[in-house]
Design a protein around this nucleic acid. Structure first.
Lengths: 245, 245
DNA sequence: CCGGCTCGTTGATCCAGATCAATCCCGGCG
DNA sequence: CGCCGGGATTGATCTGGATCAACGAGCCGG
């Protein structure tokens, strides 16, 4: 740790890298990835770290969109509600993911912590101003947005055209793939969300998700270590079922 | 017209604005919107205009993503296929929309002209290089991508949680809203796509789309001027049904 | 003018997944 | 220890939309 501190002091910047950035475990995956220490330092100047308890809201649809966030720990769900309460979860976010980007005055969706979550929070106005001076950051955000857009299109295929079985299998493979990218164990894969959240993400009901999981288990395609931990026993067969992911 | 030509010549650029840009009807809606004449001129330097016949492909999923496009006339559908041929249309594009942005080597979806279509085509590599020098353009693309992302999330709600009736009504309102933005007649609204395309966009079958339309007609909520032209007779009632758009 | 398209509409039947309902399991708490 | 409440599973039934099938209306090419 002393070594790290010294390294930071040796940097040409007036201030050393702030502590949360110094120890950041997601720097390489996050929006910050393309920035050098000096640039990161400027960005960190606007940043506040925030901790959120499980099941606590981060922001709600139609709140003023005054901040954007990077998830650095935990897991977040984002969702939209219909007036009568039906819910569609549009994404699960994990460390490294960016949260709250919009080009309107209000957020387009609600965000809630699923587990204990740690965030870096940036005031939107100040960040936007800084973007003009850090084109690398803007490029990075554009890249991340394109990536999310592609994921959203995959999700439309899933919701519009896949059977319940295909949806559940696609979901498990997606989770596992995400874990790989973050360097976490991918098989068995952690499933931190409830069955209800899975259902609202896949456009199904809890019952159908549950039935489908036990069906997959019966067919020896997966193994439920426990409710929140799934082994994908026959990845290739699963990929076949998922239909191209 | 003479006046416009003179204005262009009076610009400080060595060359006047190329003809297609000079007469561009979508400049204010498109990615080019934030550029001044001089910047637009640089961008136009890489640009080729392309005409596509109805039902002709523009590019296919998994083609090398070497170009990006702005739609300047006509109508385009973008879609993804499952291995067995099931299709999900992920978007309909109209003049001003941007097409083909990805941050991978390959396109993530296929694009096909629905009607006679005119495009501005840009070589991707050259455009990316130019982005470094035109930060306004990069900002604009980020803005457009955020906007598309929000639309994609709305579509996920539609596909995951809405009934057939709600989907069809949402779709008609969406079309009408788009027409307003482009300054085109919004009621009655033009419906340039086939019933089949509508079905593949809404995650339904042709039959269900057709039945739902006649049901809405019977209830005097809409009026079918002809197959490609729909009057929204009771907008407020329709908005109620759509559930928040 | 006719046959053979494609597109749209309508009718009859079927079924995947929703809904309704019961039970189980587990962790927290008096 | 026993109670309580939220999540998960399993079973029985129902239904919205898919599927299968027939037909009508433009439209093109010969």
């Amino acid at each position: 740790m002393a070594r790290l501190t010294i390294a930071a002091q040796a940097d040409r910047q007036p201030q050393s890298l702030p502590d949360p950035c110094e120890n950041c475990g997601v720097r390489d995956f996050s929006a910050c990835a393309p920035l050098n220490d000096s640039e990161l330092c400027r960005l960190a100047g606007l940043m506040t770290t925030v901790n959120i308890e499980p099941h606590q809201p981060i922001f709600s649809e139609a709140d003023a969109a005054d901040h954007v966030f990077t998830v650095t720990g935990g897991a977040v769900k984002i969702y939209k509600l219909l007036p009568d309460g039906r819910r569609q979860i549009t994404g699960f976010l994990f460390p490294g993911d960016f949260l709250g980007l919009t080009h309107n005055a209000l957020y387009a969706y609600s965000a809630e912590a699923m587990t204990a979550t740690r965030l870096c929070r940036f005031p939107r106005k100040k960040l936007e101003a800084l973007l003009d001076e850090l084109p690398k950051l803007e490029q990075r955000l554009l890249g991340m947005a394109s990536h999310e857009l592609a994921a959203a299109q995959d999700q439309m295929v899933l919701l519009g055209r896949k059977s319940a079985r295909e949806r559940v299998v696609s979901f498990l493979l997606m989770l596992s793939g995400g874990a790989v990218r973050r360097g976490q164990p991918d098989n068995p894969v952690a499933v931190p969300m409830t069955r209800n959240d899975i259902a609202d993400f896949l456009g199904l009901t809890v019952e159908t998700v549950s039935r489908t999981m036990t069906q997959l288990k019966t067919q020896h395609l997966i193994e439920l270590m426990d409710e929140k931990q799934v082994r994908l026993s026959r990845i290739e067969a699963l990929r076949e079922i998922a239909g191209g992911f």
